[in-house]
Design a protein around this nucleic acid. Structure first.
Length: 275
DNA sequence: TGCCAGGAAGCCG
DNA sequence: CGGCTTCATGGC
């Protein structure tokens, strides 16, 4: 299955810090586990992607997953023509980033794990939790073995000592507590997708282990409230060092989360962060 | 060895 | 409310 799109770059998406299970397998190629599937993708040309999936799976799964009905090009273009120099450069540098429509529960747990960790460490923790509590599957097309992300039920019934053995640190009790709230219906992702971003954040922050930053990440990457604006250590540097704490996300009302991703990706590049 | 990582909770003033 | 400390863990 081939996709032409001017704003779809696998490397940029894989390194943008929004997803943790999309990893390089060869030059310009990536393997990705999402839902119950494993797929491999190749960046054939700057505007051409090859996915090893059927037309049916593309239409029913991956087209939405990669948010391919949304016009990122017009946002990039408007930023390129804007007066904000940093955002001009950031939008050009990250013009192939898209906000993936990932599974809410996976984002909930992943970003609880993410606190006070770097991205390679987050990925390692998530792989261990998938191997310990996910389903072991074998991909028909490649023969590769992979593990799905665990269900809420699995993690709600996990023992804290077992999770501690996966080197999740103090976050283990947060994970169990959050999974229980999903399992018993206190957290309803279908509702949180339809309600406002602000209400979703306030609801998520009631979970122990979720503060403002993690709640915004879940809202942005798991609920697709693209007006979310997560502020982590890197964004704090952008807002203070580049903007002297005078940046107003309200200027990009309705899609500030996309702007945030360009900023996050670019500031890390400027600072020479690998992966 | 100390510092940092897509932070949050507890405590104190 | 704002600032300080602590919390597991790994990498440099």
């Amino acid at each position: 299955m081939r996709i032409h799109n001017n704003n779809l770059n696998l490397r940029q998406i894989a390194e943008s810090g929004q997803c943790f299970r999309m990893n390089p397998i060869a030059e310009n190629s990536y393997g990705l586990v999402a839902f119950d599937s494993y797929i491999e993708l190749e960046q054939v040309e700057e505007d051409l992607i090859e996915i090893n999936c059927s037309d049916n799976d593309y239409i029913s799964i991956w087209k939405e997953y990669f948010d391919l009905d949304y016009d990122y090009g017009s946002i990039v273009d408007s930023l390129k023509e804007g007066s904000d120099e940093f955002l001009r450069e950031a939008a050009i540098y990250g013009s192939g980033i898209r906000i993936l429509r990932q599974e809410p529960f996976e984002m909930l747990i992943s970003f609880i794990i993410s606190q006070n960790k770097n991205i390679p460490s987050i990925k390692a923790c998530i792989e261990r939790i998938c191997q310990g509590y996910g389903k072991k599957l074998i991909d028909d097309k490649t023969g590769k073995t992979y593990y799905t992300f665990p269900t809420a039920e699995k993690l709600a019934n996990a023992k804290q000592d077992d999770l501690r053995a996966l080197k999740l640190g103090y976050r283990d009790e947060y994970i169990i507590g959050a999974a229980r709230r999903v399992l018993n219906g206190e957290i309803d992702f279908d509702y949180l997708k339809t309600c406002s971003h602000e209400e979703a954040v306030e609801t998520l922050k009631k979970i122990r282990g979720i503060g403002d930053k993690v709640a915004n990440c879940i809202s942005l990457f798991g609920l697709h409230h693209i007006e979310a604006f997560p502020i982590d250590i890197w964004m704090k540097r952008v807002l203070s060092d580049i903007y002297d704490n005078k940046f107003d996300p309200g200027r990009y009302q309705g899609y500030a989360g996309i702007v945030q991703q360009y900023m996050f990706y670019y500031i890390r590049y400027i600072n020479g962060v690998k992966s």
